[in-house]
Amino acid sequence: MTKPSLQASIPSALADVATAKVTLPNDELLKMYRSMFLIRRVEESLLELAESGKIGGAMHTAIGHEGSAIGAAWALNKTDYLTCTYRGHHHSLARGMDPKRAIAEVLGKATGFAKGKGGSMHFVDPSLGLMGANGIVGAQVPHATGMALAARIRGEDRVAITFFGDGALYQGLMHETFNMAQKWKLPVIFYCENNRYSEMTPISRTSSVSEIYNFVKAYGMVSVQINGNDVEVVYATVKEAAARARAGEGPTFIEGLTYRLSGHMAGDLETYRTSEEIEMQKQYEPLAVLQQRLIERGVSEDQLEKIRAEVEAEVEAAVEFAQDSPWPPIAEAYTDVYKV
């Protein structure tokens, strides 16, 4: 079996739409770097907690996926709706969710954003436009599209973005949703984080379509394939898609190529890929790319180190906060079934 390689599949120029790219000022890039490093450290800390048996259930980390989350968060407003998959910690943190509440939720503590009832797969915070991560592959995609419909009905200037993996393209409801979104020209952005594996199986083994961004062309939807590991590319592409959406020009499909450096979930045996493949991908991963770019643009290693030290301390404190937090009161098991 041939292992897929990111290097081979990131195109230098897009087939259909020229890659939108901007050069962001260094201070913005430094904020992005901070947020990206925070996501990375939160995910690594969560994996450590999982290894020590403190996290139950399935937890899917997004190490290597940070580019899409950061680029999109900077391109949109907090009033723009966002839904995502169970691999969604990065999207919430990129929008500004407090890592304390995030880690506490994954641990099932009372101080989590959903009082410990949602956990790793259900990150949510409407005050940040985070309308829900989802445990069912593809289910969040019509939700965001319905939120775009709501914005249309209310006459509001909001767009919705929904993130999903390459594996979601093979769910029937995705295609039902693409059709309606395009037919009604809804202000929604479909962002596929293509990490080349549907859970543990490379899509090359299950898909009859080799380039995912081609799927929606039958619906007449604008579709682009980009380097999802480059925050400036993601930022510019999402910005452009949002402008199209706000102007009533309808949805955009973005296939952001990326690579998941961590396993599908905590405890993944990862028998489907080699350590050489993972090592090779590390040179393209978003944090390394951004760090390299900042150095090239004159930022000193000391400046970056200072940011990293701050983040390390913040994440350490968040882990401590979460571990020290109380369990939810038992009565909480019976609340929030119906809104009264």
């Binding site: 019509p142 939700h143 319905g146 939120m147 409801l173 949703t177 309606m180």
Partner: peptide, 11 residues
């Protein structure tokens, strides 16, 4: 698809 969209609009 449309029950999912209605759910999203309701959310």
């Amino acid at each position: 698809g449309f029950i999912g969209m209605a759910t999203g609009a309701a959310m």
